[in-house]
Computed example of a mutant assay.
Amino acid sequence: MSLILCIRDGLCLVRLIPSLRSFTYDRDELVDETGPLRLDFYERAAAELTKAGVECAFRERVGENMYVARYCPAPPFEVIVKNVANGSTTRKYPGLFPDGQPLPRPVVKFDYRVDPEDQPIGEDYLRALDLPVDAMRAQALTVNDVLRSWLAPLEIWDFCVIFGLDAAGGLSLISEVSQDCMRIRHPDGSRLDKDLFRDGVSGAEIVAQWKRAFDGI
């Protein structure tokens, strides 16, 4: 979770709240060290993505949990890229793929962000709102390529991002990129992401495992 504190001259100050939430497993807790860890990861990921030509809202870190970003209004949609069948894929579409099976190519889907649980939404609804669906899909796949190359030999099973539109209609990645919004696996198979929280692991163990994601970066 993040909180926009102020907006000025096209920039905003964002504070990360060290909260972990899972609707599916009905858990909602504060784990203090996860805030700085998320921003550590996001700061590095934003640098890699920017180098690859992906416009990121992130501008600079200004504190343990705070950063300055270019302000773009957030649409109520997120884009999910899946490289492995897991989570909502096997839960909502039982029988299509075995859990944990690598997909033959990345799958991109869109979710409507609504409480209490995000819902899959057909792309034509987004087109009816004049959103650049094809551009968002292409940019999400570029993000996938960059992150997989940067983090190898860690495996990215899936992630979600949010793209905003600037005044000229250009895309900007406005959501954080961290273990809070992706599934990452160590080469030994261990989990380095929020699935640990979903499984009821202690906060101290979550922090210890999240730190392992930085070993090869």
Score class of each variant (00 low, 15 high):
G63M: 11
G63A: 03
G63C: 02
G63E: 07
E64K: 08
E64F: 00
E64L: 01
N65R: 15
N65E: 13
N65S: 15
N65Y: 05
M66H: 04
M66Q: 14
M66T: 11
Y67K: 03
Y67N: 07
Y67V: 04
V68P: 07
V68D: 00
V68K: 07
V68L: 15
A69N: 12
A69V: 00
R70Q: 11
R70L: 02
Y71E: 05
Y71M: 05
Y71C: 08
Y71S: 02
Y71L: 02
C72A: 14
C72D: 14
C72V: 13
P73A: 15
P73V: 03
A74N: 11
A74D: 15
P75R: 12
P75W: 06
P76H: 11
P76W: 04
P76N: 09
P76M: 03
P76C: 01
P76E: 04
F77P: 14
F77H: 15
F77G: 08
F77C: 11
F77Y: 15
E78M: 10
E78L: 06
E78V: 03
E78W: 01
V79L: 10
I80P: 07
I80E: 07
V81Q: 02
V81W: 04
V81R: 00
V81A: 10
K82F: 00
K82M: 06
K82T: 03
K82V: 00
K82Y: 12
N83W: 00
N83G: 06
N83H: 02
N83M: 03
V84P: 01
V84M: 04
V84Q: 03
A85H: 10
A85M: 09
A85E: 12
N86P: 00
N86S: 15
N86Q: 11
G87Q: 01
G87P: 10
G87L: 04
G87E: 12
G87H: 08
G87V: 06
S88T: 13
S88F: 02
S88D: 13
S88L: 11
T89F: 14
T89Q: 14
T89S: 15
T90E: 11
T90Y: 04
T90I: 14
T90M: 05
R91L: 11
R91C: 04
R91W: 10
R91F: 06
K92V: 00
K92D: 13
Y93Q: 10
Y93M: 14
Y93T: 05
Y93F: 09
P94S: 10
P94T: 10
P94N: 08
P94R: 07
G95L: 11
G95I: 08
G95V: 06
L96S: 09
L96N: 06
L96T: 12
L96H: 11
F97R: 02
P98I: 01
P98V: 05
P98F: 01
D99F: 08
D99A: 13
G100H: 08
G100N: 13
G100V: 00
G100F: 06
Q101R: 14
Q101V: 14
Q101W: 08
Q101K: 14
P102H: 03
P102E: 09
P102K: 05
L103G: 04
L103V: 06
L103T: 05
L103D: 06
L103P: 08
L103N: 07
P104T: 09
P104Y: 09
P104Q: 12
P104V: 01
